[in-house]
């Protein structure tokens, strides 16, 4: 069956039932818009988490009685590890100087204190390109297992909270994606079902004059694909407008500006459009299977 004929018939069907098709497309668009909202929120939350997470450093405190000659080899060992961006050694003396600086006007507090009482440490920055909260934890755990290490600090609670929140939002996005796409497919398949009901006589006649299932189903499937695609495209355009509008309001502060918030990447948008179209076709195919028996 030439695609041109199916395309023509699909367009004719849409023209003849324009109101129904437009209403369905709007429902698909609204459904996709909710999903796009969740996606943009999740994506930017991840960006924010990354932005702040990258500022976190791991501080590895060494045992005070550790021989000084072991420090270069430890340094080399850390630098050679995967996912490490930079390493800085802080001696006991330097740590004490920082403490003095911190107390500034109340230096007398430190009078009589041994300048070597603070342990030497390594301040380690994680590679930004491979940063994620789970990775920070696993690297910190490796340091903690070394015999020369007294203690490891890395803002554990902050990283953990960030990670669990980020996971929750991701799960919400996935759940909403499945739920909303199923809903869109359901709405589209029901519209098509109503159209099939309305045109049962025509379908029966087509069957009697020798139409194949492909000839009968093709225009319905194509119409639902067009609804899925046009609905999701409309949702992307509307979502982009809403995003720009909200961005204009909230980027008054320097902090928000520095976060460099973004809309969905092009590949993500393309996926939404295709998946929406495919789900609508799948829903319609299932609805038609029950109606169109020879």
């Amino acid at each position: 069956m030439p695609l041109g004929i199916i395309f023509k018939r699909a367009l004719r069907d849409i023209r003849q039932n324009l109101v129904t098709h437009v209403m369905t497309t709007i429902v698909v668009a609204l459904t996709c818009l909710v999903f796009i909202f969740f996606s943009v929120f999740s994506l930017n939350l991840q960006r924010i988490a990354d932005h702040f997470g990258k500022e976190l450093a791991i501080v590895v405190y060494l045992k005070k009685d550790m021989p000084q000659d072991k420090i270069p080899s430890l340094y080399q060992k850390i630098v050679g590890m995967d996912g490490i961006e930079s390493v800085r050694f802080v001696s006991s003396e330097e740590a004490f100087k920082r403490l003095e600086k911190y107390f500034k006007d109340e230096k007398e507090v430190l009078e009589g204190v041994d300048p070597l009482f603070l342990p030497p440490s390594f301040e380690i920055q994680i590679d930004r390109a491979v940063y994620n909260p789970g990775r920070v934890r696993s690297i910190a755990q490796k340091f903690a297992d070394w015999p020369e290490v007294q203690k490891v600090q890395y803002g554990k609670e902050w990283v953990d909270r960030l990670e669990s929140f980020s996971k929750a939002v991701k799960a919400a996005v996935v759940a909403s994606a499945v739920l909303l796409l199923v809903m869109a497919a359901f709405v589209v398949s029901n519209t098509i079902k109503l159209t099939v009901y309305a045109r049962q006589d025509e379908i029966e006649i087509m069957r009697l004059v020798g139409a194949t299932n492909g000839f009968i189903q093709g225009p319905f499937l194509l119409a639902s694909f067009l609804q899925g695609v046009s609905g999701s495209l409309a949702a992307i355009v509307a979502g982009l407008f809403c995003y720009e509008y909200v961005l204009n309001i909230i980027t008054q502060t320097e902090l928000i500006k520095s976060l460099n918030l973004q809309f969905l990447p092009p590949l993500y948008m393309l996926t939404i459009v295709l998946v929406s179209g495919i789900f609508c076709v799948a829903g319609t195919a299932m609805a038609l299977r029950r109606f169109l028996t020879l």
Partner: peptide, 29 residues
């Protein structure tokens, strides 16, 4: 070819469209 007692025609379509249906299903433009 079947001719039905109740005609089984598409009443809101033209004579041309009704007759052409048998050829459209064959894929003729």
């Amino acid at each position: 070819g079947v001719i039905f007692q109740d005609f089984k025609l598409l009443f809101n379509k033209t004579v041309f469209e009704n007759v052409a249906l048998s050829l459209e299903v064959l894929g003729l433009k």
